[in-house]
């Protein structure tokens, strides 16, 4: 069953004014998908995902997770247990004395037997690539930036969420750190069928991994489709303060110079083949 968001609106209000963060947003996140969310700063991305696990209560519109409404008091706790949330710079929220205790915090709160807690922690550490022998007794604050990020992620994975929401999980990481997070997300999808919902600025990562792309603009849905279809609107995306993969951008530049680049040449390999053929026949 999916996550459904139906006619969701949200306003931030302070003493002086109120700002519309989301306006009549409706969409569905299919189970097992890799659902990417993009938009310029202030487009409402973070506000949207904070609704998905009830962190921000729905004031207008409805959200259901596997049929459980976030508006209903009883169903809300079932729904929230299904959705794991990884915030921006999650390593700032590490707090326990050891890596093990930090990751165990969530499962312990579920009142699971001690052995189950341990099993979940060790499994999560293995998933994120932190060797339990080496890391379990370390203080989270002794870890490098990339290791801290993975420890924080392990804490969310230990809750075994069916839907994993990540707000710019690669921000500030080096290339190796970024690749290891992306590889982990792919593994969660294929091994456990976890649905991935990821806010990202990297159109290259979105093109390579996402099955659906939602583009927000001023709190409204600008595009919702498979990434390669959304990227056909390159000029409009630039206008919205976003970018497109470089292969798409190259196709756009060549079109502007009068070449009839076909729609099918929408990734680097396909574009390269088309160009080679064209030059060989010239």
């Amino acid at each position: 069953m999916p996550i459904t968001v139906n006619d969701l609106s949200y306003q931030y209000t302070d003493a002086a004014h109120s700002t519309t963060a989301l306006s009549h947003v409706t969409f569905t996140i299919e189970e097992g998908s890799f659902f990417a969310i993009a938009g310029h700063t202030g487009s409402g991305k973070t506000t949207l995902v904070q609704h998905l696990n009830g962190l921000i209560p729905c004031t207008e519109g409805t959200i259901t997770v596997d049929g459980h409404s976030l508006a209903d008091k009883k169903e809300r706790s079932i729904a929230r247990a299904l959705v794991g949330m990884v915030f921006q710079y999650p390593e700032y929220q590490l707090f326990a004395e050891t890596v093990f205790d930090d990751i165990a915090f969530g499962p312990k709160n579920l009142k699971l037997p001690e052995n189950d807690v341990k099993e979940r922690v060790l499994k999560s550490m293995e998933l994120v690539g932190l060797d339990p022998e080496q890391f379990r007794e370390k203080s989270p604050f002794e870890l490098s930036g990339g290791e801290k990020r993975r420890a924080a992620l392990a804490g969310v994975l230990a809750m075994q969420p069916k839907y994993l929401v990540l707000d710019e999980p690669m921000a500030g990481l080096d290339p190796i750190g970024r690749q290891s997070i992306l590889a982990l997300l792919e593994r969660l999808r294929s091994e456990f069928g976890t649905t991935i919902i990821m806010i990202s600025h990297s159109m290259e990562d979105i093109a390579r991994h996402a099955t659906m792309l939602l583009v927000l603009d001023h709190g409204q849905i600008a595009y919702l489709d498979r990434p390669e279809i959304v990227f056909e609107h390159a000029e409009e995306l630039f206008r919205l303060g976003l970018s497109v993969p470089q292969a798409t951008y190259l196709g756009m530049l060549l079109k502007q110079k009068g070449f009839d680049v076909p729609k099918s040449a929408n990734n680097a390999e396909a574009l390269a083949r088309w160009l080679k053929e064209k030059i060989d026949h010239a």
């Binding site: 110079k257 070449f259 390269a272 080679k276």
Partner: peptide, 26 residues
């Protein structure tokens, strides 16, 4: 593009530069 056999130079560090080099070939 180079792997596919297109002669793009090492100096092309931006997509705009790749486009310029391609236009000279096309």
């Amino acid at each position: 593009l180079r792997t596919t056999g297109l002669p793009i130079s090492d100096h092309a560090l931006k997509t705009e530069q790749i486009a310029e080099e391609l236009c000279r070939l096309l």
